[in-house]
């Protein structure tokens, strides 16, 4: 399957990435090659095969519904590029 430049631009938008023209060009070519290789999966009939999403049997583990207080607010905020001691600060959205 061939991936077009328009598709690459659309995917970049979904992934919140901004690509320069030459990179869109390059990725379109590389994605076509990579997806072309992946398409070999189509030669295998997998009708009725149950998908395996994790090798682990116990991905949904329950615990008591008790609130924990493992971290201090100031520690969690300490790595934020912009914060005011209470909240993460982001550019205006409204």
């Amino acid at each position: 399957m061939k991936i077009t430049r328009e598709q690459v631009a659309r995917i970049a938008d979904l992934a919140r990435l901004e690509l320069k023209e030459e990179k869109i060009e390059k990725f379109a070519l590389q994605f076509s090659q990579i997806i072309g290789y992946m398409d070999k999966m189509n030669s295998l009939d997998t009708t009725g095969v149950e998908p395996l999403y994790s090798p682990s049997d116990n991905t949904s583990v329950m615990r008591e519904d008790v609130a924990g207080n493992n971290f201090r607010r100031e520690d969690l905020l300490s790595n934020a590029p912009v914060q005011d001691g209470q909240y993460f600060i982001v550019p205006k959205i409204l």
């Binding site: 590029p81 993460f88 982001v90 550019p91």
Partner: peptide
């Protein structure tokens, strides 16, 4: 996404542009 930790491009005033 430049919010909770790590690098942020601070030149953008719009949230989506900041993410990108």
């Amino acid at each position: 996404d430049g919010v909770k930790y790590g690098f942020r491009d601070k030149s953008r005033a719009d949230l989506l542009e900041m993410y990108r």
